[in-house]
Computed example of a mutant assay.
Amino acid sequence: MINKIKLYHGDGGAKTNELIRQIFLKNYGEAEDVLSDSFVFNTHASKLAYTTDSFVVQPLFFRGGDIGKLAICGTLNDLATAGAKPLYISAGFIIEEGFDIEALCQIASSMGEVCKDNGIRIVTGDTKVVEKGSADGLFINTSGIGVVSEHYSPQDIEPGDEIIITGTIAEHGTAILLDRYDLAIETNILSDCSALSHLISDLEMMLPYIKRMKDPTRGGIATVLNEIADYAGFNVELLEDNIPIHPQVKAVNAILGIDPLYLACEGRMIFVVKKGYGSKILQLLEELCGCREAKMIGCFTADRQKLVYMQTKIGGKRVLPSLESQTVPRIC
């Protein structure tokens, strides 16, 4: 570990994982399941999930959303990875002196709309104002609590288990790049920022066949799949032809020299599915969830190197390591 925090410590890749393990887990105590985005615990009546997240995205307003929408959707999606239907959310604001009130109203309105659409409420919060130059406009922290479906329980991953992504990749990361750097590229790309809570209800009866769920935010699908492979102890094989990506997203990233496999999604879920059940779940995703671009993108193999690799269109293999160097900081 170096002795100063660098921007790459917030990118969601190998350096972020190193920071979490060597600083936070070392001092807080090891978590039962370091792969999960929500902590699941029992009460007398039911099993609950609890999660927290902070949002420092730049710019605060981007094509397809803003920091407020992102904060609520991100929290709901972290609960969904634990199989939880959301109940309540808290919201804490750190606001820089001089921040525009109209902009703050717009952000609060976005948060309220997502909550209304998903049948939840923000029930507690906190606001702090700091001196000009101390917070780059606005930071938001949210926490969420939800009830875990009785049909969902994470299971050990085995060779042959199938991997599904619920939609096209890299749209959020690409939208942020376009707006942050005011790139003169004509495109209708929007962030995929959206809440995924409905997946838990829509797929209720198939949840016993879903072994793991993870939303591919910082570090993109390549980094998230490396985390899962490391936890499972098996290799992941992806098929390049099966990875859904809009042509415009692919083109913009080719111009910028960025690999979309490492760019954040904020409205997509990765499922690890019991072997043989992927096709049925894909059918339900399309029919019930509106996920018409969901794809089965690969599977786990029996090899134990814990590698993620992609079978390319020309017949080769490309190893996809975890994100090591900075791609796009302050993405969420």
Results as ranks from 00 to 15, higher is better:
G92T: 07
G92M: 03
E96W: 01
E96G: 03
E97A: 04
G98R: 02
F99V: 00
F99H: 03
I101K: 05
I101E: 04
E102H: 06
A103F: 03
A103V: 00
A103C: 03
A103S: 12
L104C: 01
L104R: 02
C105V: 02
A108G: 01
A108M: 05
S109K: 11
S110Q: 05
S110A: 09
S110E: 06
S110L: 03
S110I: 04
G112L: 01
E113I: 14
E113P: 05
V114A: 09
C115E: 06
K116P: 04
K116M: 08
K116Q: 12
N118S: 08
G119T: 10
G119C: 09
I120T: 09
I120M: 09
I120P: 10
I122K: 01
V123T: 13
G125V: 02
D126P: 01
K128A: 00
K132M: 04
K132W: 00
K132G: 00
G133F: 04
S134D: 05
G137L: 00
L138M: 01
L138D: 02
F139G: 05
F139H: 13
T142A: 14
S143D: 11
S143L: 06
I145N: 07
I145W: 04
G146V: 10
V147S: 12
V147Q: 14
V148H: 12
V148L: 10
E150T: 14
E150R: 13
Y152T: 13
Y152N: 10
Y152A: 12
S153F: 07
P154S: 08
Q155R: 15
Q155G: 05
D156W: 07
D156F: 12
I157E: 10
I157M: 13
I157H: 11
E158F: 13
G160W: 11
G160L: 10
D161P: 13
D161Q: 11
D161C: 11
E162P: 14
E162G: 13
I163W: 15
I163T: 15
T166W: 14
G167V: 14
T168I: 08
I169L: 15
E171T: 12
E171A: 15
H172I: 11
G173Q: 10
G173L: 11
T174S: 10
T174I: 09
A175I: 06
A175P: 12
I176K: 08
I176Q: 05
I176T: 05
